[in-house]
Design a protein around this nucleic acid. Structure first.
Lengths: 118, 118
DNA sequence: TTCATACTTCCAGGATTATCGAAACGTGGA
DNA sequence: TCCACGTTTCGATAATCCTGGAAGTATGAA
């Protein structure tokens, strides 16, 4: 991920409603969630949610497809991984004191990762 | 790291000059860099740089101390780790397809991490 | 004291972002 | 063809952010 894209992604995440929307989409999985459902989940008017979804999509963090009259949004997992990797690579800059604790904290979440060699 | 702090951090990173400043500070290491030096490194007027440094500091991503007439800024490594961990935990949500690739990409940077058990 | 240096704060402007009702658009059913 | 439904686009308003010059605040040297 290049800087320009990362800047867009950070801007997209720097907003409460958008962060909530993204969370819902990550939880929902690859199948995705309809815009209307998201609107009621985050308790915001349809036009507001649409605005934020467009923002997240432009940042590359989510994708959408039409299905009947609904528009289904889903998290773009590779973009999320890319952003995390950007933060680590770009910020880590050869300094493991940044990354190592993060990865350690991670084992609490995705234990598989900690078990690469176990 | 709680959501509020993460939102501040994302907002802080979503700005070119600030991202550049933070990068310089991460590269510089714990000793830190004087505000004036940073200003010439990012080629921006002192007042602008000061504004952005304050922003980064309020987000908890950097810290400052006075040393003679200079003010030395340094990256807050634990906050950076915390942010990465937040992204992984919060966004990963038990979905290793997000975190695993990120950690894999990481081995190119902080090889020690990939060698936890090797 | 007085002065130079290193920053920060203040301030005004322009630019961007967020919100949400109203209107428009695409889709599918009758 | 007509209508209802799910969503987006438009438009206006309010709020927030970025920029950089000018003025103010610490610090240290003479």
């Amino acid at each position: 991920m290049e800087e320009r894209q990362a800047l867009l992604a950070f801007a997209a995440l720097a907003q409460e409603t958008r962060l909530r929307l993204l969370r819902q989409l990550v939880i929902a999985g690859p199948e995705g969630v309809a815009a209307g459902t998201l609107a009621s989940e985050v308790a915001a008017p349809a036009s507001t949610v649409s605005f934020h979804l467009k923002e997240l999509e432009q940042a590359g963090l989510i994708a959408s497809r039409r299905e009947g009259r609904s528009i289904i949004y889903n998290a773009a997992y590779p973009a999320l991984s890319g952003l995390i990797a950007f933060l680590m690579k770009d910020c880590c800059q050869g300094r493991p004191e940044v990354c190592t604790p993060a990865v350690a904290a991670l084992t609490a979440c995705c234990t598989e990762v900690g078990e690469v060699r176990a």
